[in-house]
Write a protein that binds this DNA or RNA. Structure first.
Lengths: 218, 218, 218, 218
DNA sequence: AATGAATGAGCCTTCATTCAT
DNA sequence: GATGAATGAAGGCTCATTCAT
């Protein structure tokens, strides 16, 4: 029932239930729209439990974000099924596909996608740490990979623009989902759909990147 | 001060002040976070004025969205400086550049960008109408343009995927601005910056689209 | 169109429309529940017209009461079709029947019944004057009539108790109408129904009064 | 002060204070006129307590009505001191006297009379349930009793008319109290006064009922 | 250690009234 | 003389948080 943790006298069970319920409700309602009453009700715990275990609503939210991001990065690492010796094309595809899997994961208990989308639209204090611990390393990895395509002398702004082009194509499906589902209601996000999307984005981007490389070297 | 008597029986002045103040505060705080007190204070009008002129907070919000969208579409139309006889490349550039101008416009009183970004992240009842009156025609126009590149027999899903690739690259700068400005604080969005971004996105996309066209015809 | 009155420069038409609309809405919603906006809307006049013509909401209400009471007393006088030479039984029936007609009149524009019922339940400053100008004369007349039955030496408390018994039976159908219509939904208040009710109340009361007279003289 | 722990998981004390303060203020001001701020102030509790314990103002009002009605019915049951073997005259007197006691009770904390009078004049959603759970059984009991006087073949409309005559005489003192106290300021409602009134109404009605019975059998 | 009642600031809205044409 | 826009006080209710057990 209760896990043995470094905090022997707090109920890890209650903490976990709050993290799960909080993720779901913050994803659905946003930080402001979510109420501690709703979260505690869904978690089946006392209304004072959030303050007791996390201090306040903000710190529960930060913990939820941290928890969801950690889970999804462990589940779908950016190198997904490749090794440093894999071809650049393969590694780009792995980066794109794993990114799609993370932001559009529909597994039960997985709320990383909508949480991050909301955090972009309405940043909270949590964003700073996320950028430094997670997003910057991710973008650096992509930049390094793109440098292999663009050559050692490619100007950093070009690399960054290409990175933006790649990531933007992916995030479109996440950030504009409300509109996409209205314009094209039949679009689904099962694993095979994401594979197809990742294939398109990779091919489209490879052509774009190579064109940029040529232009840059001219 | 001076009353523009276009709307003889309503106080156009007060309406306009509320639309401006509402746009700024809704953009900064979101629909939920914005308070009618703040909006009225910024507009310099009585707190009951929203009720009197717009009915309630929701309808003020819808009017603000409508107003901002109308302004920006008139200011930066999607065909921006081109005609139907312009080359497809030129028209694609016009589409991309005008899109950038709209979503990243920094003119005083222009809050269309952040408002739409929030509306995507946390849709309200206003989104339905926006999709039908504005976004669908816009996407249709892009699809028609892309069909010129991809050929008459290009499968609709491919056209849509390419349209998503183009729009995604643009919106990335809008939706991820909080992260971008942390990762790359020197990036600015003056008109010449947007021109450069539009140039990159257009060239990147043209290469991607042409690769897709080749692949599709194979 | 506009009546020539002692106030040549105010619109008698507007006053009249406000009195009619006010009667209907005060009757339906009570003084507190009625809003000046609703009344002015129903009257088809400007929202400031009440203050302009009557001073404020309270004084409109008092005028409405006065107006309705005057109308109904003129329409259904307490002596209704009898003369001082009619028999006491006939005069009691006339008193009862006319009372029923006044409090349950359903003619268009006639709101005296519900207005008075509300005024009893939630007295306003208007009640004082109503009591002195209308209700006291009415009760005095009834007491005088009852004294004919009870004899010259009947103690005033007995007369008052009998008067209360008579009036109470009538007002029951007015004050408890919401309950009556739930308990007995088929009951209606057309003129012939009121005639039957008046017949019953008169006969019931005559028997009661005569029993009281006997008991009193013993 | 002292917690009566009949309801272990709710604060019975706070609930009770709100029920008492609510009864007094609803009786004095009506549902609309009463403000939650006033009620909470009088109860000496926080303004959010109504929401916490009762949900909202309407449900507090319903609870107050329920509570007051229950108290007064337990305190003064309609059979008041009689048994089924008592004479019909005695049982009619008991019905009338207990009715007077309920609607004109002046004990501290007893607000059933004015509350019900207001509910008649301006019915709320609470009236439906009151009619079915309390008023209909009460009227049915009276009808059954009156049938003993009027005979087994008395037509139901006659029974109902007599019941109305009885109840109307009683309620007059409740519903017209504001007028009565102006017309006859010396009238008081101590227990002995109510006894006298009940005696009059019973005797008056017995004569009336017996006259109706004779007429009906003719 | 954990509960649930209590807190008070703040939210959107409604209202009768007044003011400037 | 009559309008309709503007006013500001108050209304019911919600919320994250704290307190007493």
């Amino acid at each position: 029932m209760s896990q043995t943790t470094e905090l022997p006298h707090t109920s890890a069970e209650t903490r976990h239930r709050l993290l799960m319920a909080g993720a779901e409700i913050f994803a659905a309602q946003g930080f402001r729209g979510a109420t501690v009453r709703d979260i505690c009700a869904k978690a089946g715990v006392n209304i004072a439990a959030i303050n007791y275990h996390f201090g306040d609503k903000v710190r529960l939210y930060e913990s939820v974000l941290q928890d969801q991001l950690g889970s999804v990065l462990q589940k779908y690492p950016p190198t997904l099924g490749t090794s440093p010796s894999s071809s650049p094309d393969e590694r780009l595809y792995a980066f794109v596909f794993s990114f799609f899997l993370r932001v559009l994961d529909q597994s039960p208990g997985s709320w990383h996608g909508p949480l991050m989308a909301r955090e972009m639209a309405e940043p909270t204090v949590a964003l700073d740490r996320l950028v430094e611990t997670v997003l910057r390393p991710l973008i650096d990895a992509l930049n390094t990979l793109l440098a292999e395509f663009l050559g050692p002398d490619a100007p950093p702004p070009l690399i960054q623009a290409c990175a933006a082009s790649v990531v933007g194509q992916i995030l479109f499906y996440r950030h504009c989902q409300p509109v996409i589902s209205k314009l094209n209601p039949s679009l689904t996000y099962r694993r095979e759909d994401l594979e197809r999307l990742a294939r398109h984005v990779t091919d489209f981007s490879l052509a774009g990147i190579r064109a940029m490389a040529l232009e840059s070297q001219r």
